[in-house]
Amino acid sequence: MNRRVLWIVCAGVAVALLLAWLLFFRSGRMTPVEEDLPATIAPTPTPAPKQQVVLLFPGRDGLLHPELRQVSLPKESDTRIQVLVEELLAGPTSGLAPVIPYSAELRAVFVGQNNQAYIDLTGPPEPLDGSMTELMLTYGLVNTILLNTEVTAVQLLFDGSQRPTLTGHLDLSRPLVLNKRFISGP
């Protein structure tokens, strides 16, 4: 190989190595502990078995009605809640009404050490009204999560914030526990 060409290739490789070093290894230069402690643990998706879950949707009688569905349900509480909320957001399949009367998205799920879950949803684009709307939305979510997971209470957040109430009735400032009064009897 021509010596000059070899020179150019070497220079190119050197520049590439320098760039790679600058881009990927410049941060976190702490030699004593850096090799022992991984900076992050990459999420490893684990296949979850399908299970039957109970989803609650409002019916014409103004009560929550169960809809059974087979879904892949992970073991971890936060991912389990995420699956359940996504199923609720996808809507009912049996003629019931949607739990959330607007096109909502799940922003984040927190599960605290005390086993209380915090569900952060996008807020309604227009103000909602009626205690019925508020009760069905709140307990459709809260009861569904509590019936299918091991969390003990659920607090709803909207657009990343706590809201004292959604339509001016229900106290949403604190985590709520299971309320069977709004679930239709057999």
Partner: peptide
């Protein structure tokens, strides 16, 4: 300390 990520919860 430890730092882990839950992809589904985004946390």
């Amino acid at each position: 300390g430890e730092m882990t990520f839950s992809a589904s919860a985004g946390v």
